[in-house]
Amino acid sequence: MFPIVESRLLAAAVKQFKIAAPEIAKKRKPGQFIVLRINEEGERIPLTIADADPEAGTLTIIFQEVGKSTEHLGRLKAGDMICDLIGPLGVPTHVEKFGTVICVGGGIGIAPVYPIAKAMREAGNTVLSIIGARTKNLLILEEEMAKVSNALKVSTDDGSYGYHGFVSDVLQNIIDEGTHIDLVVAIGPVPMMRVVCNVTRNHKIKTVVSLNPIMVDATGMCGACRVSVGGRTRFVCVDGPEFDGHEVNFAELVKRQRAYLNQEKLALESFRHTGGACQGGKGL
């Protein structure tokens, strides 16, 4: 059992939990994720570790309520228990002094970008960050990203804050200004990562993306999370989650992410219908 020690609402339907998991907090590295299960009936949900405090023994996770499980998770409060928490999983981000690194985060993808930006900066890189959201009140971690970046640019799709447009447009502008870039790290919705990769491919700038396909065990046992990278099938849970973005078959990934749309809708409806009466986690 893993107690939630702190809960914060970061934006509409976006929550941040600090969860006590001392062993994982000590071990985790940027780029890694955990799997959690809310209660006995719960599914195994993979979530990137946004931050950790090894001394306090806590992990920070950030999630958006998009379906039954995340909505259920969002109803839990400080003091509630998470039934299972497994990690740290996945290969950590390859961090070294590359030179100038651009960290691009879109929507909820800003959460996994944050620890990478922080680690890149600590490794001596010049970190330029671009974060974006659909609209201003969905933007998260602006202050935190500003703190770990040499410069931060913000965009919103609707122009309600910062640059009016997509993070990929901002990136294109930076490239057009003639900035030398050694590496781009881009995390966000698949369409965003795909567009960013299209931009950088033209300029032969190495681009790392972090993928979030459907997973079950997340230890390399089931293959649910397989993606095509450079024409080869890879398992995101153990070979990733980060891959060379220029090699990823995003079209296939999008289709695979949508495999259970109907069931997800059904589950959410039935959860809301019953009022989500079961508060989960407690004593299970």
Partner: peptide, 29 residues
């Protein structure tokens, strides 16, 4: 890699370990 192609490990894990045969009472589809 088309949807609907499972490894036996995934198919059986969903059904046995995660009790997907009891969906939506259990969350795993």
């Amino acid at each position: 890699n088309f949807n609907g192609v499972y490894s036996a490990n995934e198919y059986l894990t969903r059904s046995n370990l995660m009790k997907a045969y009891l969906f939506p009472q259990y969350d795993t589809p």
